[in-house]
Nucleic acid binder design. Structure first.
Lengths: 246, 246
DNA sequence: CGACCGATTGACGACCATCAAAGGTAGTGG
DNA sequence: CCACTACCTTTGATGGTCGTCAATCGGTCG
């Protein structure tokens, strides 16, 4: 029971240790951070624009996405979040949310009260730095998405998105035998890349025909990583991973 | 002389006080922060992708922009920075830069050594929070740009960009008589919105013809703010201003 | 006055959106 | 077990937004 309850804390420790080295004391502080586990089905809103959250969460299992909608009902997905991500960490310091966050698949989420997070940030400034850095590296991903959606053709754009997901999933151990899951429909990928589902479908067919990706249901494999990187003009530097270079 | 040297520090104090309330001690800490003033001409790179900066800067006067380039040489402007902004604050915690930053006009910049910034952040956690918040609100702008460039037609997109600049410039007192300066060519505005200069030119003509903006050289005025907001689907919430509502 | 840079215009074409319909697949219930 | 449903994927046809190429215009500066 106690063992089970510490899993999300261990996950958070791993996450933060991928950013900064931790002392035993800091590790213990996270170990004892109250985290409330919530299970959600696919396609549920977790938080909404305008909310004043009193807690933030880490994705423990499953995929979530950040999105906004325009007046005429078009949706733009701004970020795809995978296990280990903390999509609304910003709410620690921005009083209300300017985004919606929803699950893409069934998810297990770990909620942390803002007051608890603020407390350990004050007590252990290096943890604050680590969280800050986490938001900064998300920021770098936003920047790359602006470039990707703004200046790349759809073929390249999709290849780039798949490259990013592969590298990020790999970093949290979710790529096995060069194969990973993207639980997103073509319509959702289109919303992430600012395209229409129809065009997304056609370009995905091209990518498959060119042997750059192989898709079975929501599982994707990449036969030739270097070729896909090239097609996607993908350079993982913006992800700011310390260890791995893809 | 001493008076003159404190101007950038006063500017930083004003900036931070627009985010959090400061104690006298905190104010003094910023007052004594060493800031090195550098003047730059237009179209100069300030920092470049791959750099490992040991300092970060505040724009004191003039306009700067963050940009990236694709392999085929297309440029995407990711952010337009105005006086009071700290475009590479992220470099405090991300070891290398994933972006280029250049001046759009002649600029006066105030450089702060990382070690000095880190010192006051450690000593005064509320200052760290303020800087963190500053990066978070920039992040919110990135998000809105993804929506803007991804899901809005060019006409709406440009209107939105102009709205954003007007509100941000207004917040730092750079709008007078409903008129402000955007020292950016049409080509640069095109780079910011993911369009071509030719199309930018045509859409700007439309906006002028519709009476939404009046342009003289690089000076813009907005005859009917509500109409422009409507055309740009502009809602300033994402800017996270505490006081003003546009 | 000439050179240069940005704004403007025109012609043309490509990429991608839109609309509509059909085919596949998974899940549900009788 | 099969019919039914719902959702996603796929396909076709068509059109619009915007990109591309190229030339001209206009203002500024040395």
């Amino acid at each position: 029971m106690i063992q089970a309850l510490s899993i999300p804390n261990d996950m958070m420790i791993r996450k933060i240790e991928s950013i900064v080295a931790l002392s035993d004391e800091e590790r213990q502080a996270i170990k004892h951070l109250p985290i409330k586990i919530v299970d959600m089905k696919a396609y549920q809103d977790i938080v909404n624009m305008g909310d004043h959250p009193t807690q933030c969460f880490m994705v423990l299992e499953g995929f979530a996405c950040v999105y906004k909608e325009t007046i005429d009902g078009n949706r733009q997905i701004l970020a795809i979040h995978i296990p280990g991500d903390m999509p609304d960490l910003q709410s620690l310091h921005l009083p209300f949310l300017d985004i919606n966050i929803a699950t893409l698949s069934a998810c297990k989420l770990g909620f942390v009260q803002h007051e608890d997070a603020r407390r350990i940030c004050e007590q252990y400034p290096r943890l604050a730095t680590a969280f800050w850095r986490e938001t900064l590296s998300q920021s770098a991903i936003y920047r790359e998405w602006i470039v990707n959606n703004g200046r790349r053709k759809s073929y390249t754009r999709i290849a780039h998105l798949i490259c990013e997901l592969k590298v990020r999933l790999n970093a949290v151990g979710l790529v096995r035998n060069n194969r990973f899951i993207i639980p997103a429909s073509q319509a959702e990928l289109a919303d992430a890349t600012g395209m229409t589902p129809v065009h997304m479908n056609r370009v995905l067919q091209e990518l498959r025909a060119d042997g750059l990706i192989k898709v079975e249901r929501s599982s994707v494999s990449i036969p030739d990583w270097e070729a896909l990187k090239l097609s996607g003009e993908f350079d993982p530097l913006y992800l700011h991973f310390v260890n791995e270079v893809a």
